[in-house]
Design a protein around this nucleic acid. Sequence first.
DNA 1: CGGTATCCGAGATGATACTG
DNA 2: CAGTATCATCTCGGATACCG
Lengths: 115, 115
Amino acid sequence: MEITHTKESCAASRRAIQDTLEVINGKWKLLILVTLLEKPLRFKELVREIGVTPRMLSKELQDMEMNKLISRTVYQTKPIAVEYAITEHGKTLNRVLEEIKNWGMSHRNKIMREE
Amino acid sequence: MEITHTKESCAASRRAIQDTLEVINGKWKLLILVTLLEKPLRFKELVREIGVTPRMLSKELQDMEMNKLISRTVYQTKPIAVEYAITEHGKTLNRVLEEIKNWGMSHRNKIMREE
DNA sequence: CGGTATCCGAGATGATACTG
DNA sequence: CAGTATCATCTCGGATACCG
């Protein structure tokens, strides 16, 4: 494909970016994703690990489950156990996550060097 | 460097991601960036191009200028002209932008295929 | 043209308490 | 344990009008 910078291609970029933002918006979704990328966790473990309130975690997990980014599995033990895991579709966000992570690290280094 | 998934590395990832999110948060910043990546634009041009209100554009531009992602240049013509451009530092977000864009395009294709 | 001031409603987020 | 309900607060973001 030819590399162009027409008004149309720029508008298409914006649409694509907006689409992605709709899926990963919110303060916690990417943090949840990167945490679950390491290994599946239970509700309370996520609360402790990320430092999010149960209310927000519940909401964001529901959003992400609707978008098929994560799966929710209930184990009928007692007490009940619920495990959240990243899905194959969720894993496709890995490259995005990696770049955001890399940028954050470089940026932090940059700020530290400048101070 | 060895690839590990310790609790510490995961926490570091989260910190990096949060750092990045603080810089690119908001509904419009990434859209502004990807638009300015093509070429510098003036205030009103950005309003028209992106479809953002002047109020929000003004706010986001100020944030981004503080974070050195964009530059603001005033031309003393009459009437006055102000041009916004992406900085070298802003360009370092290009890889993030690209991945977000790619994912958005794939995701849109995926949804269209499934319907 | 390039913004800013003001107002307002909607949604995000947190704290706390509570349920099955 | 795995959430939900409720309340309070704060911010986001749009509409509109206005200024230099």
